[in-house]
Write a protein that binds this DNA or RNA. Structure first.
Length: 371
DNA sequence: TAGTCGTGGGG
DNA sequence: TCCCCAAGACT
């Protein structure tokens, strides 16, 4: 009978903090050792980092901060400007909630972020994780900020057998018990740095981990089996048609999507419905205007969180002076970069306008940025 | 509670 | 190519 070796000790936060003091990542939103963190920057970064990689966030964060340097500046800005600054980053309800939150901070909290986890939790777009992270990092509150990194680290430390997301309450409790009262913010960031650089999903670098000794999973050699999670199924393929109208004055027909739902409040070319049984051969029934439509070869493929999408792109060239249908508008091609275009729509426009080459056979696809 | 909400990078 | 995943929130 195999007996598992008991781990050497319980995980001690000073061991993690000592590691953090030597190996902490330098990030644009992170105060250097000894600096006082700015709650606005901490909050902004936490919202952007929700389900989004550090690499993806960096340029958006720097650009955003330049455009909206303070929570007051953000609150005063029109929501469309915020959506435009967010375009390309994904999960667009975050941008709408971000703006609403800035307004709430100005209107209900005299322009200063509240310092407690409970008050932060009441603000739009701030959930359990973000409330704890901002409270700990910006205000030194002893809160347990449990994100995906922390779930992984702690589930390995204690070999939590319960699968996610049911294990969340237990993981929060286990984390909270380890939070040191003197450095709660550093502890939160240390745990996330550890998860991002050492305790990675695949092939964790256990030999470099300050918590190798107390880690139960490491003792068993089972670290890659945690956290356990129930798998979710991907949705069925949906198809649709996208219509790119190029007017002779070099403008494009656009519209804004409803604020609720998929790509809420973002800008798109006119499209058909997106549904599993869509027939591109009947797309003319969905065209926004009468014109000589050209069905472009190839498809625009895009994968959302819960379903894959294939769009057939149709292109029409219409004369100067062609009026826009109701609730649509013309935007000059050179001004497209100012529109809140999500990734899938940049792909559509690149496919229709990009470089004219077919997207077949390994030919270089035009980059969605360069329209 | 489980489904909805983007995008890009890595193995 | 495919799958996983990344500092989750909201309904």
């Amino acid at each position: 009978m195999l007996t598992l070796a008991p781990r050497a000790s319980k995980p001690q936060s000073p061991d993690l903090l000592a590691w953090y003091d030597r190996h902490r990542r330098s990030l644009p939103w992170r105060a250097e050792a000894g600096e006082v963190p700015d709650p606005y920057r901490v909050w902004l970064s936490e919202i952007m980092l929700q389900q989004t990689t550090v690499t993806a966030v960096k340029p958006f964060y720097l650009r955003f901060l330049e455009r909206f340097p303070t929570v007051a500046a953000l609150a005063e800005a029109p929501v469309d400007a915020v959506m435009q600054a967010w375009a390309g980053l994904g999960y667009y309800s975050r941008a709408r909630n971000l703006h609403a939150c800035a307004k709430a901070v100005v209107d209900k909290h005299a322009g200063a972020f509240p310092a407690t986890e409970a008050e932060l939790l009441a603000l739009p777009g701030i959930g359990a994780y973000t409330a704890a992270a901002v409270a700990a990092i910006a205000f030194h509150e002893p809160a347990a900020a449990v994100d995906g990194n922390v779930e992984r680290v702690v589930s390995r430390l204690f070999t939590v057998e319960e699968p996610l997301p049911k294990a969340k309450p237990l993981l929060r409790t286990l984390t909270l018990e380890m939070v040191p009262l003197d450095r709660p913010g550093d502890f939160a960031q240390a745990l996330m740095d550890l998860g991002a650089t050492i305790c990675t999903p695949k092939r964790p670098a256990c030999a470099l981990c300050p918590w190798m000794a107390p880690c139960e999973a490491r003792a068993q050699g089972s670290q890659e089996l945690y956290p356990k999670k129930q798998k979710k199924l991907t949705g069925d393929l949906r198809r649709g048609a996208a219509f790119v109208v190029l007017r002779a004055d070099d403008s494009i027909l656009l519209r804004t999507r409803p604020t609720q739902g998929l790509l809420g409040g973002m800008v798109e070319t006119p499209t058909s419905a997106w549904e599993p049984g869509y027939e591109p051969s009947r797309a003319m029934l969905d065209a926004p205007i009468e014109a000589r439509w050209q069905r472009l070869p190839g498809l625009v493929r895009h994968v959302f969180t819960h379903f894959p999408l294939e769009l057939t792109v149709f292109l029409a060239k219409v004369p100067r002076g062609t009026p826009e249908p109701g609730d649509m508008r013309w935007t000059l091609r050179r001004d497209l970069h100012e529109e809140a275009l999500p990734g899938v729509m940049k792909k559509v426009l690149a496919h229709a306008l990009g470089d004219g080459k077919p997207v077949r056979n390994g030919a270089a696809k035009p980059k969605p940025d360069q329209i």
